[in-house]
Design a protein around this nucleic acid. Structure first.
Lengths: 278, 278
DNA sequence: CGTACGCCCTCCAGCAACGGGAGAGTCAAG
DNA sequence: CTTGACTCTCCCGTTGCTGGAGGGCGTACG
């Protein structure tokens, strides 16, 4: 019979952990002195503890280990649990890997650009959403205000379900003949008017960045998020959206209090990934 | 000004999380109604929240994020933190990867052997330890008892610092002319006698398994642990140790109450890894 | 004018797997 | 008998939240 300290040294498991395993019923000492409460372990328990440690090394939770130990399961059941465990572990591995890649991408970006403001880009899913819109080719990006004017004359702004936004349909940056769409989200039962387009935005994964400042500085945020997308191994995958979270009436190009979100739909780039050591 | 629910929908961050960030001081609402306690957020806070989420995606803890946000750090400092983060994340990735490999190795082992008892092997570090011993070539493994007889005649067993053990120096299994060493751990200040060898065990990483049962079934455990070592991509790296955690006097080959630990020193195999899908 | 409903609040408990420490009791040797 | 090493229980803390109880606030409806 071994006292807990000896058992701890022999198994290289801390006393705290042994007591915890006792408490949760994973490994009860063969003998407990009822007066003093002292725990006494036998050598046979060392083998049980070894099984516990082995299963822990495979990433099972203590609950699962308890189940495995008390249920004398067949080879097939064990195989099933292991397959499940493998799938789960593959998921976790993937997440950790993605996290590492994001860190490395940012390091490389800083290395290249020597800029600090690249850390506010996040990836998120945007739900599908019905919207009413007017689409037209305009002379420049900042002329989209007139499209919104037309939109709100046709559609009572009060019925909007959220902040209005623009969609840029061109694949590349253009200084003129911009294929623009001015949009306002509406109830999903709304069916549209003759003068208005009505459609559903598809659900997409986007890289999103919040621009706080005047519209005439928006290009900086655009460049930043596009570089981020590239550095993180994504490809632009659909028209970019520009959401006017906060703006004023009348619209001004140099109002510093405006808040705008840029959403760049993305998909994983199938090509090579980043290289380099920085 | 947005109520917490609106801010939550806009940012896709749960209300609970927003309140938590308020509590820990990461993101305080711009305005709080002192009477009702209602929190009111501005659009500008959406940008701050985005930064928080971006840093969280990089794997930083909320404490670290708080530090980054309130300390307006330079590009160099940021780069330093990111490098640190990268190193840490690489470590985590490695651990998850090893865990996955262990699971896959076990699956493959079960696939090949259709046996269930392969889950009690663990890897551990064994501390260096001074020991006294007698080394001799004997006719068979089970003759090591006579070596221990000689050892304890020369050395008072009471001074042992732990369970005695054997070292098998042969590289392969042998049915005769076994190069065996009977050992007993001693105090580290002990210097040895003329008839006894005295040396220090090196600190090594071992694959360890506890055998509970008679000595004449030990071979099964040996085969099991050796297969495990191979399946997990390790190589045997030094003489195998056999530790007699529980044995009796007189020694018997068929006593089922004996407990013995087998320790196989290992190193990573540089060659290819497992393949196959099971 | 009451009330029902949808928000919002604070406070507390819980997760997983222990680690740290207080305060008190136990064991074996000298 | 005393000393010192060992052990016990109990409680709190960790991380980043989630869930729920119990109650206040605001507005729309009958």
């Amino acid at each position: 019979m071994l006292k807990i300290g000896d058992f701890s040294r022999l198994s290289q498991v801390s006393i705290k952990t042994l007591r915890y395993y006792d408490e949760v019923g994973l490994l009860k000492p063969t003998q407990v002195n009822q007066v003093s409460g002292y725990r006494y372990y036998s050598m046979v328990q060392l083998r049980q503890l070894h099984r516990i440690l082995a299963l822990r090394n495979l990433g099972f939770s203590l609950d699962q280990i308890g189940y495995v130990l008390e249920t004398d399961l067949s080879t097939d059941e064990l195989r099933g649990m292991l397959r499940l465990r493998r799938a789960e572990q593959q998921q976790r591995l993937l997440k950790e890997q993605e996290c590492l890649e994001r860190v490395e991408a940012l390091l490389q970006l800083i290395h290249q650009e020597n800029t600090t403001n690249t850390d506010a880009v996040i990836i998120k899913k945007v739900e599908s959403q019905r919207f009413a819109s007017i689409r037209k080719t305009i002379s420049a990006y900042n002329q989209v205000g007139q499209l919104f004017g037309a939109l709100f004359r046709a559609f009572p702004g009060a019925a909007a379900r959220g902040p209005c936004f623009a969609i840029w349909h061109d694949d590349e940056h253009k200084d003129q003949d911009v294929d623009a769409e001015a949009c306002v989200p509406v109830d999903e039962k709304y069916q549209g008017l003759s003068t208005l387009r009505c459609a559903d935005l598809p659900m997409v994964k986007v890289a999103s960045v919040i621009h706080h400042g005047a519209y005439n500085t928006l290009t900086q945020s655009y460049q930043m998020v596009l570089k981020w997308v590239e550095a993180n191994g994504y490809q632009v995958h659909g028209p970019i959206r520009e959401i006017y979270l906060q703006c004023g009436e009348p619209l001004r190009q140099d109002d510093h209090s405006y808040v705008t979100e840029i959403q760049v739909p993305i998909a994983l780039d199938r090509g090579g990934r980043r290289v380099g050591n920085n």
